[in-house]
Design a protein around this nucleic acid. Structure first.
Lengths: 98, 98
DNA sequence: TATGTGTTGACTAATTTTGTCAAAGGTAAT
DNA sequence: ATTACCTTTGACAAAATTAGTCAACACATA
């Protein structure tokens, strides 16, 4: 299951939006939002930002978890996943302070 | 530029294969291999394994770099890329010793 | 019944990825 | 200057993935 989906579902409920209302508010199909919240379809970053905004929630953690899920998806069942992450991290750090 | 591409090009030359010969040997179009080595097209893991085998080279580092590149590609220009990697790493470690 | 909730599946459209091919331009042999 | 290689390029089509649309379903409540 998607933690981003679960988080956004919780946020939605706390903010008092029905699935339909939320979907309409960000101009998207209800079916898709339903599927996204349950991890049956992938979120786009744009959707996440729109929803966070709608629910008046901070989006940082959502985006981080979103990206993390994307990365883990690429690495699923890879023997060297962890090693790859470490190389990527090193690379990214290097790029950053440059 | 792709380090996997560069690595595989070096390996190929050291192994004495022309681009054509290598491509034929693994049953792929020369044009594509040329582009892959120069990072213009993405490798598939299968291609990497086939080539490493052909060149009698160890594939571990190649695969790790390949995955790392894929991950970095997903994260390019992301403000929270590093944070996402850390979350992913933690998650992966957890999954592993389970 | 009527209204609101979320879910499902079938279908199409759009986008991205992958594969095929022909031609170009380079180098070297001689 | 022709032959025989080599690598690169770009145009195009095919295939696969992802995204969007829509109608209907099941459930609950008023």
């Amino acid at each position: 299951m998607s933690t981003v989906g679960l988080q956004l579902r919780e946020l939605r409920e706390k903010a008092g939006f029905s699935l339909r209302k939320a979907a309409v508010a960000i101009d998207m199909d209800v079916a898709i939002l339903s599927k996204m919240e349950r991890g049956e379809r992938k979120f786009s970053k744009e959707t996440i930002l729109k929803l966070a905004d709608l629910y008046k929630a901070n989006s940082d953690k959502l985006v981080i978890d979103f990206l993390s899920e994307k990365v883990l998806y690429e690495l699923e069942d890879e023997e060297f996943g962890l090693e790859a992450l470490k190389v990527a991290e090193k690379e990214l750090k290097y790029k950053k302070h440059k």
